[in-house]
Design a protein around this nucleic acid. Structure first.
Lengths: 340, 340
DNA sequence: CTGTTAGCGCTTTCAA
DNA sequence: TTGAAAGCGCTAACAG
């Protein structure tokens, strides 16, 4: 409020007065209703312009029963998942059409309840709940008076609508790609086995192997989603099974560690050893040597889909409940295919 | 809306009716005003509970003139800066007290105007503008009817209130630390020299050197904020000046590249070569070998400060305009001090 | 202590 | 075509 000229924000009544019409007429003119004389409309619009009138969305919402706002309730501290989803949602809603309240519950159920209450009291038209893992999370419950869509982390209640990336297919695609590149001695290094993501990706990997009549080399190595573990696990795996010619990693962080170890052991990537990551976290994947092939969960699209689902639900035609697994994509870089 | 029991959301009038009191009394009871009989209050609260009544913040805002919402207008696609700032803002406001509309303009001025209009029409009480560089950005202008605070990227108009990390001091602290560790042959590798951040950090570094009677070894090497450049630049610098014993890097990405090259050239870190980064981007800094000492811009605190500034401005006592440079902090890890 | 009344800014019948 | 009036859900005087 740099230039506080003593004047409060202009209201429709100010505009009407300045244009010399009634409030009702001004309203119609502003909203492009067709029962207004062209001349009148021009006059009203001019007045609005001069007063830099901005309609009060609250007053409007009070009447309409809808607010044109949506809540995004996340527990994804780092914003790695929530940001693309937010962008997708903005895309789907159309910039400026709908505004998004972003609330970070920080993984705390109490705080989540607080935020939920606040969102409801602001009369959001719907809520998207974003988790940071693909494990099912507790449902907000059935008594939330607006539609809810769960993104990334599905709800544990099948009556809710959930959208989550298809990790099984992702795992399958990763291994299919390795096989297509001619590799047959494939190992798997992943993170915390308690994560659904870890299990699902492994499941997909095994499907692909089995179709090709192959098996994983050694047991999958599970521990943490870190580069440290990637380095250690790669050393271990390559020592136990020196004939490994490809490693499917459960995350890009792990893959980065694997690449480091490969380099230290003198394995050429991708000639001697192909490496594929997961998540396509570009700050990691584009900075390795060679750059890292990875599976991208297509989160922005997931966000768009979530927004569209929410839209439909708000509009009244509720999408069929349940968990929908959205397609992921393979991003090929130098760690699996030799550049020339 | 899983259990749509045909009932629209309960209103205060429903509560009043159920409790057998007037709307006004119900309102008072709900808002803890003291001119209500204890028994009545209990009855009203019970009724509210049973109807799971949530006050309509819009109706309330319409009356109060304030909405308890704030807009966060960003152009920081990746969310690297905006997320900690958002969290800091939530902290300062108190969870659930204030809600934040997050809008991503994606660096597009048109889209920014759209979002600004939308925020104003939602009658946010104030706006925080977050940029993704520390270079001054165009002001929203003086005719925005609510207080605006610029965070990370300052406004180019000195009449605005801007909070930005103190990069000069950051640069100074980095080099002071290297000197304190006994290094004297210090080089600087940084990113795009067109960034104010690059220049400011260099300025601070030179100040620290000059105080110690030292000079940078060679000219600072500028190019891109990438690991690739870090690798190449380190090779170049160490070839030209083999006696370099410390490198101050303009970003953690660059530092990561530098560490890779050091390892390849057989330089022991930190014994032969100390390396310090900038940003304290933990996914990078905590995964190098050794882990990376870095300067942390304290963004969450910056967010809190921004929120508090905005609060004050909303409250009427406008903080003094201008650019405030907030303190950064040194995070020491193994790349500058040997672990034992 | 409680209820009545008057709006906040806007849209929407319904008359004129 | 325009305007007067009602009311969205709530709070804040002011009487009772």
């Amino acid at each position: 409020m740099r230039t506080e000229t003593g004047s409060r924000t202009a209201t429709l009544s100010d505009v009407a007065q300045r244009a010399g019409v009634s409030i009702a007429t001004a309203s119609k003119a502003m909203n492009d209703r067709d029962d207004v004389a062209a001349a009148t409309r021009t006059r009203v619009l001019a007045a609005a312009e001069e007063l830099s009138f901005t309609p009060n969305a609250m007053a409007r919402g009070l009447l309409a029963g809808r607010t044109g706002t949506v809540g995004l309730l996340t527990s994804d501290l780092e914003g790695r998942f929530v940001i693309p989803i937010l962008m997708g949602a903005e895309d789907a809603f159309g910039a400026g059409q709908v505004n998004v309240f972003l609330c970070d519950a920080r993984g705390d159920a109490i705080r989540e309840q607080h935020h939920l209450k606040a969102l409801l009291s602001r009369r959001v038209d719907g809520i998207i709940v974003v988790g940071r893992q693909t494990d099912p999370r507790p449902s907000l419950g059935g008594d939330v008076p607006v539609p809810v869509v769960y993104a990334y982390a599905p709800s544990d209640d099948p009556r809710d609508i959930s959208l989550t990336p298809d990790n099984v297919t992702g795992g399958r695609m990763a291994v299919e790609h390795l096989i297509a590149c001619g590799h047959t001695r494939i190992a798997h290094i992943s993170g915390d086995p308690a994560y659904a993501a870890a299990q699902d990706r492994l499941t997909g990997a095994r499907e692909a192997l089995s179709v090709a009549g192959l098996e994983l080399v050694g047991e999958p190595l599970f521990s943490a989603w870190t580069e440290h573990w990637g380095r250690d696990a790669a050393a271990l795996a390559l020592q136990r099974h020196p004939d490994i010619d490809a490693i499917f990693c459960g995350s890009d962080q792990i893959a980065r560690g694997v690449l480091d170890t490969a380099r230290e052991l003198g394995r050429r990537v991708p000639e001697d050893l192909a490496v594929i990551g997961y998540d396509n976290w570009t700050v990691l994947a584009e900075n390795t040597r060679p750059e890292l092939t990875s599976i991208d969960a297509n989160l922005q699209q997931l966000g768009r889909r979530a927004a569209r689902c929410l839209f439909d639900a708000i509009g009244g035609d509720a999408p069929t409940p349940g968990v929908r697994h959205l397609p992921v994509k393979l991003v090929i870089r130098g760690s699996t295919i030799e550049r020339r």
